[in-house]
Design a protein around this nucleic acid. Structure first.
Lengths: 124, 124
DNA sequence: ACTACTGTATTAGTGTAGATAGTACAGTTG
DNA sequence: CAACTGTACTATCTACACTAATACAGTAGT
């Protein structure tokens, strides 16, 4: 279900997070469907349960899944609360934008870039 | 000339970089004016010359100053070459923008944000 | 209540990258 | 050659990220 690349420099927990996210996005995992337990997935992948846990905690913080102690972890409703992570992401954008001043990067350039990036999105 | 905050979490070399940059921006340092030597500034601040060096190397990479071995470091022409760092900064923007998709952040939101940030700039 | 599952917390080991410093090298100028 | 300049190499210290080991705690079926 999850394929790890042990040699990759991207952390294991990130790989798990991304692949679970992808499976939710493509509908392979449905809302309220139970995810593999941290232990079983850990054994499957030959890693420590805590590493899976870290991926799940991150996904929960982002609002994509929810966990219940003793029961399991489940996929959230598609319109689940992603406001927390949204604010964080917007703050990141603000941060990087605020440091462009000394380099003569104009508003128009940024606008153009944004336009371009969202145009690429549509074609997917 | 430079005031360090030793307790701050921002690295010393960054503090130096920022303050030199500010002094160039406000005209306190003029084009082709010689900067303090890495040693003298290091002694002034009670730090290692290499730390000052790191700030100078960064500023040079960004095109704000230039250094000549044996002579010294000097402020660049105001329209000095900042194209390298420009590209890097734009890449950063691209990077952070590319990760906004899953969180339902719209193009309009970003546009609004950019607009807002550049509006604040004008008032300075 | 016991058992077997689930998630959670605490702590520790490991690796790696960043920041700073010590020291030696090299160019410029008088 | 002396006294200044920047530069390069290396070591160390530290902080943090990643992962793991292990113990704790909740849920459900028997």
């Amino acid at each position: 279900m999850i394929a790890l690349n042990q040699t990759s420099r991207t952390p294991i927990y990130q790989q798990i997070r991304e692949q679970v996210l992808a499976q939710i996005a493509c509908g392979l995992l449905s809302p309220h469907q139970q995810l593999p337990g941290v232990r079983s997935m850990a054994i499957d992948l030959g890693i420590n349960p805590n590493t899976v846990m870290k991926a799940y905690v991150e996904l929960e913080r982002e609002g994509f899944i929810y966990s219940v102690a003793g029961k399991g972890s489940y996929v959230s409703e598609p319109n689940g609360d992603v406001s927390v992570i949204r604010q964080e992401k917007l703050a990141e954008v603000r941060e990087v934008l605020s440091k462009l001043r000394p380099y003569g990067i104009t508003k128009e350039e940024i606008m153009k870039l944004v336009e371009l990036m969202y145009r690429e999105e549509e074609t997917r």
